[in-house]
Amino acid sequence: MTTPIKPKLKVATTSLAGCFGCHMSFLDIDERLLELLKLVEFDRSPLTDIKHCGPCDIGIIEGGLCNAENVHVLREFRANCKILIALGACAINGGLPAQRNHLSLPLILEEVYHAQHGLVDGFIPNDPELPLPLDKVHPIHEVVKVDYFIPGCPPSGDAIWKVLTDLLAGKEPELGHGLIHYD
């Protein structure tokens, strides 16, 4: 009799208004990735290039919400993932992109694409394929329910590993001193 093979957990990841630094930090778990791959398989992720998220056990979101597409992707993840994790400062509190929040959006677009010195005939891009920017950048928990948060800019590979292994072991994830960082 053969022992039944334990199905692998499905994990999806994405970067919204982030810099991919959190994904780079995720890769910093180094050879532990091989250990992880024995337990999980990746669905939508920059690592697989799958474009849409199917039903998953864990969804990991880097970055906050700065445009309409970010909101659509986030909702797709929430609808498909049993557990949703906010990874890093931008997903948790808006982070660097949210530093634009005290400026008005028209002023920023005008400054960046039109008024700045050296922009000859500059114009604000309006291709219908471009997602519309939001008035303010928001952390993801302001739009969907988020189950777990891994703070840091970026969180260390060790912090990401700790949360994932705690979850895979069926435990409440806990980051102690040294792993919990906001910087």
Partner: peptide
Amino acid sequence: NMMSPHFDQFFPD
């Protein structure tokens, strides 16, 4: 162990 701000950000100027 504050893992998130929980509330909505004010983003004051």
